[in-house]
Nucleic acid binder design. Sequence first.
DNA 1: GGATATTGCTCAGTGTACCGACAATTTGGC
DNA 2: GCCAAATTGTCGGTACACTGAGCAATATCC
Lengths: 177, 177
Amino acid sequence: MARDRSTTTRNSEMQISEDDSRLLAMPGHLIRRLQQISFALFVDQAKAFEITPVQYAAMVAINNHPGIDQTALCNIVALDRSTVGDVVSRLEKKRLIKRLNGSVDRRTKSLYITPAGRKVIKDIEPAVQSTQRLILAPLKAGERGAFLRMLKELVHLNNEHSRAPLRLTRAPQRPRA
Amino acid sequence: MARDRSTTTRNSEMQISEDDSRLLAMPGHLIRRLQQISFALFVDQAKAFEITPVQYAAMVAINNHPGIDQTALCNIVALDRSTVGDVVSRLEKKRLIKRLNGSVDRRTKSLYITPAGRKVIKDIEPAVQSTQRLILAPLKAGERGAFLRMLKELVHLNNEHSRAPLRLTRAPQRPRA
DNA sequence: GGATATTGCTCAGTGTACCGACAATTTGGC
DNA sequence: GCCAAATTGTCGGTACACTGAGCAATATCC
């Protein structure tokens, strides 16, 4: 290892070594890169709306479930409660959703899409579709289905390893002391 | 759309609707989830070292290229200069790397692994390997190679869409005025 | 019905990841 | 060798993402 002497060579003219290739070929590293790319493509395609992928996901879920509370939203979009708090507060500031105090359970906040938010969901649709297309564009047409299927398997079967796992219904929690 | 009335139903008991499924099956959403999982698995497997995937990547690259400057490091690990600045400053605080003023170009910082850092790279290796294995574990053995190959293609061919693309040599930049 | 446990949300703290702007420095054109 | 252009690292700002602590409200056990 350590095959060059950057101290004496000039700045960013850097050759990738074999040791680097080991790192760069790791699944974890490639997944991180693909997430960066996917995020950048979305933001770029949807730049007229100034919306991020997570903000979009939250808006769609709120639109599908009017009055949903933040914890239930966590379970759909797979984020922890703190992050969801941040995301919905940004959406509220942009007046794309409303946040009301829950009438049944006064601890909760009930989330609703606004007319402006509904319009964004509708108008942004082409950008969302083209983003998904662009992400998979480098694959051959026949490979895309297989890749997507494996992606789903990896996410669903590794679900419990995530810090904010998707929960379809209330978890089988609390074996009491 | 909007098939339930969460206002009257109780808290996080939430059924996933068909509209949600459209969202949850998007490549971009799945990639984000897989990155969360991959990150969590790494941190968990390597918890004895309190090291993140990006910190590990930076340490390996610095070990492979003693004296590398921060911009060249960006091009290997695919992060922008601000992020690399944060990452190396955390590694320096933990005394896993050293940061010296460049002798040739006084704008740069020359990065070096410390003995402690070298030991971490060595000792953490089993955790890194088991992480990579766990990420792909849900796939059938015969599928893993294909998935990894497609992942590489997606990253390399979409490279330019990333905000911090991998650069093997100095970019063909600067057509001067 | 009252003690106890659980839940919903927020806050502070840490870390990744980006952008745009900046001073110091180097480089390229002449 | 001088000056304009380019580069390096930092800083402030924004956003995602998680942990752990804490408060208020609700639910549960007896």
